[in-house]
Design a protein around this nucleic acid. Structure first.
Lengths: 243, 243
DNA sequence: CGAATCTTTGAATCCTCTCAAGTCTTGTGG
DNA sequence: CCACAAGACTTGAGAGGATTCAAAGATTCG
């Protein structure tokens, strides 16, 4: 219908448009999955759609939490900044999940981390005011929202258990396995490029150390550059590295 | 009223009793804070109260999530077991928070981690069936439940950011600061004893390494054994170690 | 094309882990 | 209440891994 529903044309500028929830492909897996769109059409009007290029800040820690975002496509990181300026990624958010859950909490709540796109990302922005009426008379919606909180806890857990435990070699291998975009039948995994810095921030390590591990993977033929923006892995070997 | 409300007499056996929500001291800070107890009295009858000694398993990962527990007093850890038998603490749960949030999700949900007491702990067990009727017609309760999810995310975050980042010396110092039981006005912090193993599991380290750091703290007069089951810290020095 | 940013590599240091042995605690049963 | 056994904690020595600092090489973007 609108350009908004087509994902091919988000270059290095962001666009926005009115969301078309009725025909949204992602909706069946997101928080609005069981909501009767026709019934609440009026309420859903304030929802808008965005496409951000990679490395775009969606919101900053400390900003007032007025909207939440459903990720339709792409990858978003939530990160915390330390006094010394270094950063730590505390959650990764993929298709179907929500960025900015704080919005559901009391008024005057602030975002706790900074949300930034890692890849090109499409999102629907939903203002806080959309939810109260739906919550009021749709009991399923409550379950869907709790499912979202649960998913974020799992993401946090994963970073704790998989990306912060074991040798750096294991941790980096697990990050790549998590990022797999598509898997060919011949055991080759395709991965969109991600910065060494982000992997370091995820694994609680340094750029240099991560770079060394990746270089080692390349030397061992475990990893090859398949196209300018993609990497290719040998699944079996990568899983062995992940332990 | 009942023995259940008195916390002095939980020795190395656990006791249980019917909960007395109406006179519960903890209630105003927990998930039932804004619930009208009189109105739902009938529903709340299945709630029972327990007192477990330290190192008691509340439930195991994989068990069906049929009940949740409100911590009235004490400290509980949620931990994940790896293939090689080692463990990692992924959350700490204190007074007023909930152990077993999975219970709110769909039926047939399983507990994802194993919950174990670290100190002597008093809990109220609330069966899953208690909640649907309250959720149905108390809109505040929904907010309270989300607040609980939010708290758990923060706990997870804290372990990620404070206990898994930086040198081991920093991480251990931060764990002690977190565990502070009471602070005297003269800058002395009292801490209930916690096993070296648990600190290692929290900081993603080993018993030996944690033991060495603690020994160093003792040598530097930063830490002293104030009573058989307690430790005492110099707050200023400890904060300096935490960075 | 050039500046800014990100990545790679080297060398030295420091930190943490591992393994192994010894010590201390704790809980149990006599 | 004491003695013993099992478990938890401590300590040492050596090896290996990760960090730091510094400098050079790539990429990216305007």
């Amino acid at each position: 219908m609108t350009k908004a529903l087509d994902s091919g044309n988000c270059w290095n500028v962001s666009w926005e448009g009115r969301a078309d929830c009725k025909h949204c492909a992602i909706r069946k897996i997101d928080v609005l999955a069981d909501v009767d769109i026709d019934k609440y059409e009026e309420y859903l009007k304030p929802i808008t759609q965005y496409c951000y290029p990679k490395n775009t800040v969606i919101y900053n820690a400390g900003n007032e939490a007025t909207d939440l975002y459903v990720v339709r496509k792409g990858l978003v990181k939530l990160e915390q900044t330390f006094e010394d300026g270094s950063m730590r990624i505390v959650r990764l958010i993929q298709k179907g999940s929500i960025v900015g859950l704080e919005t559901f909490l009391d008024h005057k709540q602030k975002y706790e981390q900074t949300a930034t796109t890692i890849h090109k990302t499409e999102l629907c922005r939903i203002p806080e005011r959309v939810f109260p009426p739906i919550l009021k008379d749709d009991s399923h919606f409550f379950l869907a929202v709790m499912g979202q909180w649960h998913e974020q806890l799992e993401s946090s857990n994963q970073i704790l258990v998989e990306f912060s435990t074991g040798s750096l070699r294991q941790r980096v291998a697990r990050v790549f396995l998590y990022l797999v975009d598509e898997a060919n039948r011949d055991g080759l995994l395709e991965i969109k490029k991600i910065s060494v810095q982000d992997i370091a921030s995820l694994t609680s390590s340094t750029r240099e150390s991560v770079s060394r591990v990746v270089a080692e993977f390349k030397r061992n033929q475990l990893l090859t550059k398949s196209s300018p923006k993609k990497l290719r892995f040998d699944e079996v070997a990568l899983r062995k590295q992940a332990e």
